Amino acid sequence: MMRPRLAAAALALALSPVSLSAQEQRPEGDPVIAVETTDARMNEATAEARATSAKWLAVVENPPVGATNITFKFPLEGYEHIWVLDVARDGEYVTGRLANNPHAEGWSYGDPVRVALSDISDWGYVDAVGKAHGYYTVRVMLDYMSEEQAAEVRRQYGFDD
């Protein structure tokens, strides 16, 4: 089945599950921020996430006491970078459930996925004191948000201003 694409030169990057509550799940898809595929900062963030994924995999396999929101992002249907929770490693893959309500046709919040490690575009988790680790693409997206939204995301993630 052919799935619709967003603008050919854009990536749809859903906000992290840390910033969206279950009550905010929308049938039309969760809010996204469109970013050009040529955005150098976003491409650097994705490269950094991939380069540091071994650190995240160690957390997946042996979560520190109090760690929550162990998550990763991948390009659903090749364009909608979406978060996944309930993560487990399966060899060279990770499995879990969609943590955002996707725009991609035929997919829903909570759907199970199996993703090659090489397809992960970001990762994250929150430690016992509430500080977010990873979330490289979210840090870039702060510049695409309204000041109010960015301040709220910084607060929720424990990011420094």
Rank of each mutant, 00 (worst) to 15 (best):
E44L: 13
P75N: 08
D86T: 04
A88H: 15
G29D: 01
L76N: 13
L98C: 05
D86H: 15
T52K: 07
P63H: 04
N101D: 07
D119P: 10
V32E: 00
V153M: 07
P64W: 07
L85I: 03
R50H: 03
P27R: 06
A34W: 11
A116F: 05
D119T: 15
A49C: 12
I82N: 00
M141R: 10
D86A: 14
A34T: 10
A128R: 10
A10H: 12
N62D: 12
Q156F: 14
A34Q: 14
P64V: 04
V35Y: 05
E61Y: 07
G134K: 00
A104R: 00
L11C: 03
T52C: 03
S16W: 01
A47T: 11
R41I: 09
A104G: 13
L98M: 04
L11E: 06
E77V: 08
S118Q: 10
T71E: 07
A49H: 03
V126D: 02
I33Q: 04
A150S: 11
W83A: 00
A132R: 05
D161H: 13
V113S: 08
V32D: 00
T68V: 01
A45C: 09
V113M: 11
A49W: 00
Q23W: 07
D39Q: 14
D127Q: 10
R139Y: 09
L57M: 14
A150K: 06
A8M: 03
Y135G: 02
A12T: 03
Y157R: 05
G91A: 08
R5F: 09
D111P: 01
A116W: 04
A58W: 04
Y125I: 02
D90P: 04
S146E: 00
L6D: 06
A150Q: 05
Y109C: 02
L15F: 07
S19Y: 13
N100F: 04
N100S: 06
N69E: 09
N43I: 14
A132I: 05
G78Y: 15
A12L: 12
M42S: 12
P31M: 13
E24S: 10
D127E: 07
S121Y: 13
A22G: 06
L11D: 01
Q156T: 13
G106E: 09
L98Q: 03
G158F: 09
K131I: 08
T37Y: 12
R26L: 11
A40G: 08
A49M: 11
Y109D: 06
A9T: 10
N69F: 06
A45M: 12
A54C: 02
M145Q: 00
L13T: 03
A7S: 13
D39I: 11
I33C: 01
D90V: 08
K131W: 09
D111C: 02
Y135R: 05
A14P: 00
Y79K: 14
P4I: 04
Y136C: 09
V140G: 02
S19W: 10
K131D: 04
A104P: 05
T38Q: 14
G124E: 01
L142G: 09
S21H: 10
E105N: 07
S16N: 10
G110A: 12
A58C: 08
M145S: 00
F159P: 06
A51W: 08
E77C: 11
S146A: 07
L11G: 02
T52G: 07
A150W: 02
E48T: 13
G106R: 13
P17H: 02
